[in-house]
Design a protein around this nucleic acid. Structure first.
Lengths: 244, 244
DNA sequence: CAGGCAGGTTTGTTGAACAATCCTGTGAAC
DNA sequence: GTTCACAGGATTGTTCAACAAACCTGCCTG
């Protein structure tokens, strides 16, 4: 459909976080799939997945021509996709310099947990947890426990994130859902940059189980206290293991 | 610099919310000012101001060629600006149909206040209100009272919004600040579509004064209760006057 | 070794073109 | 007279090609 010159990179280009071999060769995958979405959306999805999966490390520059050559899309379409990623905070645009994968800092982690404390406890305080919601939470924790038993770290991490997204969803606000998605995406960015502590989530699966039970028993205040402690603990845990 | 054919609109184009005379003739203003920002940013600012000021009413379609002709920018640049506005929720993109100014619904108002209850009480609970913050809040309420006395509705409305933005800012999170900005922008959209009740804010100036004093006296719980009642009351007030 | 300048590279923006989709109005069929 | 189908025009979505502006690199001079 489109001629792809497939030019080799010249040298490892002593950029920050130098690219091992050639990063961009690996992310060509599913631009075709997931139709019915606009091309920029699909491009953004490809890049989003690559970043969240840790294929493209924080701080890496995303050069326009390399990616357009690789994906076979126009520069305009790619720039449009960049704007979507920038709105998610996954990527930051430095004027006349290009776009770079956001590099999370220690302050980012503190902010993430400040937000989560407000959002998640706010949802617990303000929302009524229907029996369907309780069932969903229990289903997610059950999946997380199975994944932990099977030592499927990625699946467990995703289940844990879904659990907390589900809690925020009880506030019934699409804007809060979006914000929580952004926050969790930034959390994944933190994990992607931190190879040394991959099983961070495993210690918190049982905490989620307990939280779901407290919510099921309508023990609001106890659930809130449990959640606050959970979040404070996770924050400290993460900061301890961040050893810059 | 660019030839602008300045083509007249043919007929009042029986669009929803038909355009009185010609809307687009009036928003050409400050594209030149506020330099050091990219062109799409400046275009977005022009449109944002026009929308927030009520120049372009909710539901209005934003046709590409008319605006590009008027502003003298490329269609690409305008589309880029549209994406920024869409990220703010000011505008919605209907595929193959174009972009339209978001039309707030009753459910939007309920969501706005669900969010504000969580965000603002969360900030009150989680943040320490420094003496500088207290002074800033007092300064804003003083300005609001002066504007109310001078019957400058717009200035009073803006001061009221600044007050609540300032409360959220105490949570020290740029992402929460952004979300609050989006929420308040949507509030302005509600007011823009509702000409019948322009002095909505005047009743709430004294409520803000009281809240600032409670915060100054470190009466957290009372401040939180006051805030919750304030928000519940404002929501009901707004819904009553929405008479669709 | 420091600083400045020229060159190449990358981004930012525009214009033109075309495909795809939507909207409109006309005409035919019932 | 109403409804349906279809053709035509208008608008959006995407790509290609080009150029201006900013940045980065390396050489060259002092």
């Amino acid at each position: 459909m489109v001629s792809r010159p497939l030019q080799r990179l010249r040298e490892p280009q002593h950029d920050e976080t130098a690219s091992p071999a050639d990063i961009w060769d690996q992310l060509l995958t599913p631009l075709e799939a997931a139709d019915h979405a606009s091309v920029p959306d699909r491009v953004a999805t490809v890049l989003r997945n690559a970043i969240s999966a840790g294929q493209v490390l924080p701080g890496t520059k995303l050069p326009e021509v390399k990616i357009t050559d690789r994906l076979g899309v126009s520069r305009h379409t790619l720039r449009s996709a960049f704007q979507l990623l920038a709105a998610d905070g996954l990527v930051e645009r430095r004027p006349n310099r290009g776009v770079f994968v956001h590099e999370p800092t220690e302050e980012d982690i503190r902010e993430i947990y400040r937000i989560r404390r407000i959002l998640e406890t706010g949802a617990v305080r303000a929302a009524v947890f229907s029996s369907e919601a309780i069932e969903e939470l229990r289903g997610i924790t059950a999946r997380a426990e199975r994944s932990r038993a099977a030592e499927d770290i990625a699946a467990m991490a995703q289940a844990n994130q879904e659990f907390h997204q589900c809690i925020v969803a009880q506030a019934r606000s699409s804007m809060l859902d979006e914000l929580m998605s952004k926050v969790l995406a930034r959390m994944r960015l933190v994990f992607a940059g931190m190879r040394s502590y991959p099983d961070f989530h495993s210690g918190y699966v049982t905490g989620n189980v307990q939280l779901a039970e407290l919510l099921a028993q309508q023990k609001r205040q106890e659930a809130e206290d449990h959640l606050i402690n959970y979040l404070l603990e996770a924050e400290q845990d993460l900061l301890r293991h961040l050893t810059l």
